Computed example of a mutant assay.
Amino acid sequence: MIRTIVAFIFIFISGLTYGQSNLAIKKEIPTVNFELPKGIEWDLVMDVPPEPGNKGVLMFKHKPIELSCADCKVEPIIAVLYESISDSIDAVEYSVNYIGTKPYQLVHKLIGGFPDYSGDQHSVVFDVTYVREEVEHSVLLAYIVCNDIGIEIICDTITEAFPKVEQQMRDFIRNFSADEY
């Protein structure tokens, strides 16, 4: 009985934590809609509205995933960065502005956009790899431009852990939309 009550309270609190209406991004982009990956593996770790000179950040971190090496754990992330931009650029131009400015040498491949890879009509999605401190990372990058807002979605983990979270990350991008339909 007590476990049932504790589980119910946890689920209720988790629902409050992930309630979209309370998120800063929802206040900045009222039309934004997305679904978090199913389950309780992902925690909201950052929800910061944009300020002059800084992007807004919404970030989720996966519970630690144990890897084959002793004492190796990794915490994949899903981050949404957003900012006001000029209405004269599209998602491709927006992606070019950012994909080349990353601190690591990216190997990227454009895989598409709406509707196969993204839930937003004004989007482009890339499969990316890079190496940091001799460890390869697999990343999904999505860029969306809608209503003078530029959005960058970064789904990042080390390549060894990617198969464990890949579908959840792809589903997040596929369900993310800033469009008004």
Rank of each mutant, 00 (worst) to 15 (best):
V6E: 13
F8K: 13
F8V: 08
I9V: 15
F10N: 12
I11E: 14
F12E: 13
I13N: 05
L16S: 03
L16D: 00
T17I: 15
Y18I: 11
Y18V: 11
Y18F: 13
G19P: 00
Q20T: 05
Q20R: 07
A24R: 10
I25K: 04
T31E: 15
V32Q: 01
V32Y: 01
N33Y: 08
N33C: 03
N33K: 13
F34P: 02
E35D: 14
L36R: 11
P37T: 06
G39M: 03
E41A: 08
D43E: 12
V45F: 05
M46I: 03
P49I: 07
P50D: 06
P52T: 11
P52D: 13
N54L: 11
K55E: 15
K55H: 13
G56N: 04
V57Q: 03
M59V: 06
M59D: 04
K61M: 12
K61A: 09
K61T: 07
K61H: 05
H62A: 03
K63W: 05
I65W: 02
L67Y: 00
S68C: 03
S68V: 08
K73W: 09
V74N: 06
E75L: 08
I77W: 01
I78N: 01
I78R: 00
V80C: 04
Y82D: 03
Y82R: 03
E83G: 09
S84D: 15
S84T: 15
I85S: 11
D87Y: 10
I89H: 07
I89L: 14
D90E: 06
Y98S: 09
Y98N: 14
I99S: 01
T101V: 10
K102L: 12
Y104M: 13
H108R: 09
L110V: 05
L110M: 09
G112D: 07
G112K: 10
G112L: 09
G113V: 09
P115E: 07
Y117Q: 12
G119F: 02
S123G: 11
D127Y: 06
D127F: 06
V128K: 02
T129N: 13
Y130E: 08
R132H: 13
E134Y: 10
V135Y: 02
L140E: 04
L141Y: 15
L141K: 06
L141M: 13
A142R: 02
I144V: 12
V145F: 05
C146E: 14
C146Y: 12
I151D: 01
I151V: 14
I154E: 14
I154M: 12
D156R: 02
T157N: 03
T159I: 01
P163L: 01
V165D: 02
E166C: 00
E166V: 01
M169N: 03
R170Y: 02
D171P: 01
F172S: 00
F172H: 02
N175Y: 05
F176C: 01
D179M: 12
D179P: 01
E180F: 12
